[in-house]
Amino acid sequence: MTLTAKAFQRWLQGIAPDASTADICRVSGIKRTTLAQQLVRGKISVGTVVSISRAYNLNPVTALAGFDAYSVLAGPPQAPTSSELVSQISTADLLRAVLARPAMDPSGRKGAPPFVLSPAPHATSVKNWVDAIDDGEVRHRVSAATGVAPQNYSAQLTANRLSPELAVATALAAGVAPASGLVATGVITEEEAGWPPDARQAALDSMSDGELTTLAGDRLQALGKTLRRQEQDQAQTEKIWENLG
């Protein structure tokens, strides 16, 4: 859901009473035409509020919580679950973590050297996040709550996309912290959502060798499927070019 221009103007008055639209665009890096268009249409995107909050050193989550549509974000940050944290670790990092486990080395010595996890989000972070919090019925509940058709929802997940509105609705339907969805979709950073700096690393370290290897295997399998489908699509397109191009 977008935010109304009226509520946005009121919020802007509160944080930068004397700034002109041009000033706001300059400090936040938003294109003037983009903001002008959003104001004319009366629909301000979540990304706009996040960019402006960052420019004025405000927490974007707190800023969003001031708008009616995102009032669920208000209050002290709720801690993410362990599986949510792990879902925000990229597949490459998970595989690296598997190799770094002593169990993977036949001589039993310490494996690969330690490394720093790349920041969230990653290439399949949205899908992995929903999988991590899904009890099997979450998709239905989100669809019932928002009126978005299940196939449209699935299509967004496959494309590793989710609108901020759906991300928050998904978190609520699964009973997890609403800000997590915004992290997985890359709208806000882990830090902004109140995740401790090494929370993901700690969640990763707490996994047993078996759990980690199984998860990495699942991710690898999903990645393989996606790659194969892309290759098949490519081959089909090549065939069309070859015969009709």
Binding site: Q236, K239, I240, E242, N243, L244
Partner: peptide
Amino acid sequence: VRVSKGFG
């Protein structure tokens, strides 16, 4: 012929 071949 071309279209059926191309589109598999």
